[in-house]
Design a binder for these strands. Structure first.
Lengths: 260, 260
DNA sequence: GCTCGTGCGG
DNA sequence: CCGCACGAGC
């Protein structure tokens, strides 16, 4: 079974590439981020035609997540319902989180980018990550130890996850506060599935469109799949497929695949 | 020898289709309208690479004409220089007219659309056509009887040039004043090259992008090639190639070709 | 660079 | 419906 995560940077624009990739890679479940489309406008027919059920939680222009799955899934959307209160419903104004319940709980996240260190958006990112931690704590209590969290975290956990980590201490996606917020999530009891199989650097999932980032391999590993130890035992492999980043009109992100 | 006219609706967007078509059709001279590009930004290298000299007269976003020619040409741009005064230099603010001098004078025009009957733009269209008439009168006096005028006239000369002429009396591109302004130009001594070979209706050069105009064949014949009688004698054929209207990302216009 | 929305022009 | 410009977000 193959579960994947991919920030597609507009599901409408990337529709042909995503369809092609799903078929070639024989993916069972794909968690998508940055769909940039309202639920009314989600191009579900295209994916249903190739055998995928579509679950989506989107908005106009920005953010938006979706899960495309060969099997039917029971999905829930946003923080609300799991963690409640004014703050979580405020957080749900941006559509960045959904989950599916099957044998395993699968959480699909699009963590805020944060713009630049200490900006208003940076503080929102930290708050959002704190909410995610609360959310995952409840999920663990509620549904037990079979959890996968995947998505675009907009954080490179370690220096080896950046093409050139020098001078990135104060860079968005690498700053200590972000890394710590992510660590506090991981410390709830998750394992970086990719790092279970590959310990070395030079593996990236995102390259800036600008300044030929991909051609120069100026990449960052910011898309992750985190799993509970019980799930970790079942994983056969976890890897990045950079081929979709090479095609015409690519997303700036490459998908990450987990086989189990 | 093949001379053609084609409103490409952005030379940058249509570059691949135009290059492909020039080669397949073995065109010697192509008059282009609606290039929508400044002279600095005209993609001349692409056409030079396939053996065409580029002569262009454009502006940002709107209008713009060009001549692509296998042989070198001597070109002149706008009304000014042929007809002078405040009005013609005012008219030249919109880049809609250029000409080439060889054995034959070739005039390339993009007549204003006119928006709707009696609008401000409609009156501008009529004025522009009056200026064109003055311009052509001078050209005839100056250079004699070897003249070809081609381009997007935004006028269907007769009812048979419209898919459904009923109720189009007050429609832009069919109203009596426009048709009369065109007739006054033709009456300077020009022949509709297309009509020399095809007398019947159901021949169109433009189909609205909206409401699936092409699929429903809701077309208009508004792109024309007019020639002096001396030239008319040398023409072997004149026809519309609708194939470029069938491809992916087509212009809303099809090219018209004249063989001589 | 490459998305998107908005607004204009056709 | 499909071009363009512009501004925003990443």
């Amino acid at each position: 079974m193959k579960i994947a995560t991919w920030n597609v940077n507009s599901i409408r624009t990337r529709k042909p590439q995503v369809k092609e990739w799903l078929m070639v890679q024989d993916i069972d479940i794909l968690c998508v981020q940055e769909t940039k489309v309202t639920d009314e406008e989600f191009p579900k027919d295209d994916f249903e035609q190739i055998g995928y059920n579509c679950y989506f939680y989107g908005q106009k222009s920005y953010n938006g997540v979706a899960i495309l799955s060969r099997n039917n899934l029971e999905c829930f959307y946003g923080f609300s319902g799991i963690i409640n209160g004014e703050k979580s419903s405020k957080m749900d104004e941006q559509k960045r989180l959904m989950a599916a319940r099957g044998d395993i709980i699968l959480v699909n996240v699009y963590v805020p980018n944060g713009n630049s260190v200490d900006s208003e958006k940076y503080h929102y990112k930290l708050e959002w990550l704190a909410s995610l931690r609360e959310y995952l704590k409840v999920l663990k209590e509620k549904y037990g130890e079979n959890i996968i969290i995947c998505g675009d975290f907009n954080i490179a956990p370690e220096d080896i996850d950046i093409y050139n980590p020098q001078g990135k201490e104060n860079h968005i996606m690498a700053s200590p506060k972000e890394r710590n917020a992510l660590k506090e999530i991981v410390d709830l009891g998750f394992i970086d599935a990719f790092r279970k199989f590959r310990k070395e650097g030079n593996y990236f999932t995102w390259w800036d469109y600008r300044q030929n980032g991909f051609a120069r391999n100026r990449g960052w590993r910011i898309d992750h799949i985190y799993v509970t130890p019980v799930v970790a035992e079942k994983i056969l492999d976890c890897y990045i497929d950079i081929n979709p980043r090479k095609v015409e009109r690519p997303s700036d992100h490459a998908p990450v695949i987990c086989e189990l």
